[in-house]
Simulated scan of single mutants.
Amino acid sequence: MSNTVFCRKYQKELEALPFPPLPGKQGQEIQATVSKPAWEAWQALQTRLINEKHLNMLDPESRAYLMEQMQRFLDNQETDQAEGYVPPTQA
């Protein structure tokens, strides 16, 4: 059985991340408090934000913006959404 963590996003015990998703103390904190499903949901939102808002990941302001959005998402606060995004329909 895999390791579990009490997820701060979903407020229940879920599968843990296998390794810190970011370097340093912040990555260790995320690994200890965020579940694998929550991190995958964040990655999907992050990808939409980068693509739809045309963020340049070499720009420190774009990276700071994404880090702020990540914290808001994981803490169940309102986040920006990608304008014009339409989720795929189930066939």
Rank of each mutant, 00 (worst) to 15 (best):
Q69L: 03
R63I: 11
T33W: 00
E29K: 15
A32D: 09
E61S: 09
D59T: 05
D59W: 07
S62F: 02
S35V: 08
A44R: 13
W39L: 10
E52L: 07
Q69C: 02
E29M: 14
Q31T: 10
K25C: 05
R63M: 08
E68I: 06
E40K: 12
R48C: 02
Q28K: 12
A44V: 10
A44F: 10
Q31I: 10
Q46E: 14
I50V: 15
D59V: 03
R48W: 04
W39F: 10
E29N: 14
E40N: 13
A38G: 09
I50F: 08
Y65H: 04
L45E: 13
T33D: 00
Q69R: 09
Q46D: 06
R63P: 02
A44M: 09
L49H: 02
V34P: 06
Q46V: 02
W39D: 06
A38I: 08
R63Y: 02
A44Q: 13
Q46C: 12
P60K: 12
G27E: 06
G27T: 05
W39T: 01
L66K: 11
A44C: 07
P60Q: 13
Q28T: 05
A38D: 04
N56G: 12
E68Y: 08
L66P: 07
Q28D: 08
L55V: 01
T33E: 08
K36W: 12
Q69M: 07
D59A: 05
T47C: 11
P37H: 07
E52T: 14
E40S: 12
A64R: 12
H54L: 09
K25A: 11
A32V: 04
T47G: 14
A44T: 13
P60E: 15
L45S: 11
E29Q: 15
Q46L: 01
L66Q: 06
G27D: 04
Q28C: 05
E61H: 11
K53W: 13
Q69F: 03
D59H: 10
L45A: 13
P37M: 05
E40L: 14
A32W: 01
L55A: 03
N56V: 06
Y65I: 00
L58F: 12
G27P: 05
M57L: 15
K53G: 04
G27I: 03
Q26M: 09
M70E: 13
S35N: 09
E52N: 10
I50R: 12
M70N: 09
E61M: 06
M57W: 00
N51E: 11
G27F: 08
L55S: 04
T47K: 15
S62Y: 02
T33F: 04
D59Q: 07
Q28I: 00
A44K: 14
Y65R: 03
